[in-house]
Design a protein around this nucleic acid. Structure first.
Lengths: 219, 219
DNA sequence: ACTGTTACTCACCGATTGGTGACAGACCGG
DNA sequence: CCGGTCTGTCACCAATCGGTGAGTAACAGT
């Protein structure tokens, strides 16, 4: 893999156009970041290292040290980039939902979160990483993710007050933990605690069970 | 670290005699297995390899190849050894519980499982491993764990029929997923989804929320 | 055109990994 | 006693890891 610009140049080499700017720092930086994200999403954190990222980015690892200050900085950049998650995952159409109770809201958020996590391999890998390791790298990344998730929840919640008499923080933590583990387990082995999670039908069952769980506590 | 026997020998040989290692295959095998389990429990699967296990077991890695056929066989042996989990985790005192409803049962099982997982680092690491990787190694280990858990649940359930009209498989999968993620997240970072999980007070809150969740679906 | 800076590549380092073949010593049957 | 098997050790392999210092090629300012 080469720089995007380099690829573009290669593609139009048929013409006699003079090559322009193979040396483009910001493009290289973007290529590195993109390579890192893709690598993390596809391969997981096991084989996530300087050499692998440089290989995939098609540049020398030295550039990663120079531009990001090593893997730590690169991971931090990924974390910073995680803010874009919020924008992508907020449905602009919030209409059609009248008179939301807290139960309505949590049911909707749970299903949305499950769906979002299902088709975001990078986020899944990060969650798995958080659980498996406790280095400073992961801690920072975890904070960024937590922050992004919190922001997402805030945006989605709007101005709705939680019910009294229930420890919503703890209950919601359990609900979201449930979703995360279900999705991660499914992504890894196609099942969770013996429950098959492969085709759409399986996930429909899971969704129904999730609704029932949420409705059970929040009515 | 050396064999226990070897250590004993070393302790009583002041320095005159050349140290002799006891030739005891089964003891060495046990030492290797124990080292592997401890290593996995303490360090996690990140640095789990032939060299690390041999180092901790105080023997040459060649012996791991000979006795277990490499890491795969060793992991499989760990899985086979996982059956003992069931015996350790079944409270012999099942009296004092009259007229169990399914809700009573699931509440009790949930709390027991959470507690059991909380003080079993090896099991936690295995769960985290399952989620993070999908190699043949992990698959076998996962199966063994799943089997052990299933056996445990059977033993605990006794002869109690689940309620109709509820997809108990899916709901229970969600509940146990919730517990696993909560405990793993806590073990890694002392919190889960912003919910602090450090001292006993925190866990008490989590337990209450868990009860509420279970009671919500199963009454 | 000269100079200095920027962007980038390359070669090398020590350490560690998984894996193998050769060897030494202890034990046992003959 | 000898010879073979079992148990354990050691040296070595190629590959990969993270990390660094030095060199090269393209650019910009003058």
């Amino acid at each position: 893999m080469l720089n995007e610009t380099a690829v573009a140049v290669l593609e139009q080499t048929s013409a006699a156009e003079p090559e322009k700017r193979i040396r483009d720092r910001s493009a290289t930086e973007r290529a590195i970041l993109k390579a890192a994200k893709n690598l993390l999403a596809e391969e997981g954190f096991q084989n996530f290292g300087i050499n692998a990222v440089a290989r995939r980015a098609g540049c020398d690892k030295q550039l990663i040290y120079r531009y990001y200050g090593g893997l730590d900085g690169l991971v931090e950049a990924i974390g910073a980039d995680l803010g874009s998650w919020v924008k992508d995952r907020i449905p602009e159409d919030t209409g059609g939902m009248f008179l939301l109770t807290y139960g309505d809201l949590m049911e909707r958020l749970s299903l949305l979160f499950m769906e979002a996590l299902r088709d975001d391999p990078l986020m899944r890998r990060i969650v798995a990483w958080e659980i498996s390791e406790n280095t400073e790298q992961v801690k920072r990344l975890s904070e960024a993710r937590s922050k992004a998730l919190g922001l997402w929840l805030d945006r989605m919640r709007g101005s709705l007050t939680p019910p009294k008499g229930v420890d919503t923080a703890a209950v919601n933590a359990l609900i979201f933990a449930s979703i995360q583990h279900l999705v991660l387990s499914a992504a890894a082995g196609g099942q969770c605690a013996g429950l098959a999670l492969k085709n759409g039908k399986d996930w429909e069952k899971a969704a129904i069970a999730l609704k029932r769980l949420v409705r059970g506590v929040y009515g």
